[in-house]
C-alpha cells in the first residue's frame, strides 16, 4: 500500500505527536521503506510458526496479591499543575 501524507497525519494525531508539513513528507518516505520491508517479510511462508509476542524467551512472573504501596498522594501531586480536594484537575472533558 502506497503511504500518503494523510496517513502520516492521522497516525501522528492518534499518537498526539505534532508533525510539521516538511516532517510529514519525510516520514512518508521513511515509513514507506519500513512498510516495504514488512511486505518482504510477508512473502515468507510462516505456516506452523508460533507468533512471537515477546522477544525474550521467558514467561511472566507473578506477584502475590498483597498491598505493598502506601499513600504517597502529596508527593505525587507536587508535580501536578492543578489539584483540588485530592483530585487531579484537567481541562474539561465532556463525554
Amino acid at each position: 500500500m502506497a503511504l500518503e501524507d494523510s496517513h502520516v497525519r492521522r497516525a501522528a494525531h492518534l499518537a498526539r505527536i505534532a508533525v510539521s508539513d516538511d516532517q510529514a513528507s519525510s516520514f512518508v518516505d521513511d515509513l514507506s521503506r519500513i512498510l516495504d520491508m514488512v511486505d518482504q517479510l510477508q512473502s515468507i511462508d510462516t505456516e506452523g510458526v508460533i507468533p512471537l509476542s515477546h522477544p525474550l524467551d521467558a514467561t511472566q512472573r507473578l506477584r502475590a496479591d498483597e498491598v505493598t504501596e502506601t499513600n504517597q498522594r502529596d508527593n505525587f501531586q507536587r508535580c501536578a499543575p492543578a489539584v483540588e480536594e485530592g483530585l487531579y484537575l484537567v481541562p474539561r472533558v465532556v463525554e
Binding site: 492543578a82 483530585l87 487531579y88 484537575l89 484537567v90
Partner: peptide
C-alpha cells in the same frame, strides 16, 4: 471544578 474536570485514579 471551575470549568475543569477532576480525576480520581
Amino acid at each position: 471544578f471551575h470549568g475543569m474536570t477532576g480525576i480520581d485514579l
